[in-house]
């Protein structure tokens, strides 16, 4: 994975699989620290599974016995002078967070957040997603509930709507960055 936004997409997919009705993705850049948090109200994990979830030989899928998503993210965070944490409660939800030192030589670029969010939006069904992006004191919030309110009976995964959502996020992320290349 060359971009952190790809890890974000990958990990957020776990929330969709956990049947979360609300997924909150928060990306914060502040004082040389990049933080991302993915919080969901999905099925959660029991303690036994949670304890081995960073092991690459733990997975819920049946096609094979490896699951690389979480171990990869943990490795990248630790390589970049940051930390990885995951908390979960069965029936309540899961929160995954990772931090990265902004100026660390091993920190991958953030990459295209808009492309990742759009890919997630198509997978939501009736669930919702709140994406919050902030750089220092600038902040942008994208909430699919607001989009749905405007859409009425048009499905959110309609390609024309997706292109619009992508442009909207792209523009606002750029404004939030304020000329910074993250």
């Amino acid at each position: 994975m060359r971009e952190l936004s790809l890890n974000l997409l990958d990990i957020a997919e776990n929330s969709v699989k956990a049947k979360a009705t609300l997924i909150e993705i928060t990306v914060t850049v502040k004082a040389n620290l990049l933080t991302f948090v993915i919080k969901d109200n999905g099925c959660g994990m029991d303690e036994a599974f949670l304890a081995k979830v960073t092991d690459p030989f733990t997975t819920t899928r049946t096609t094979r016995k490896v699951g690389m998503g979480i171990p990869l993210l943990k490795m990248i965070a630790e390589m970049s002078g940051g930390e990885f944490a995951i908390t979960s409660e069965k029936g309540v939800g899961t929160t995954t967070s990772a931090t990265f030192q902004l100026d660390h030589i091993n920190r991958p670029p953030l990459g295209d957040l808009a492309d990742s969010i759009v890919a997630l939006v198509t997978d939501l069904g009736d669930s919702n997603l709140i994406f919050t992006y902030s750089v220092e004191n600038e902040k942008f919030v994208f909430d699919t509930r607001e989009v749905r309110a405007e859409l009425e009976d048009i499905p959110m995964d309609n390609p024309e709507i997706l292109v619009f959502i992508r442009d909207l996020i792209k523009q606002n992320v750029e404004i939030t960055n304020g000329g910074l290349n993250i």
Binding site: M1, L6, L9, D10, E13, R61, G67, M68, G69, L72, D112, D115, S116, V118, A119, P159, E160, L162, V163, R166
Partner: peptide, 22 residues
């Protein structure tokens, strides 16, 4: 678009398909 697909470059493929269809 699991971990394997994403790291192989599925996201730009997905977005290109969306673009072309739109």
């Amino acid at each position: 678009m699991a971990t394997c697909g994403i790291s192989a470059g599925a996201r730009p493929v997905f977005n290109t398909l969306v673009d072309e269809v739109a």
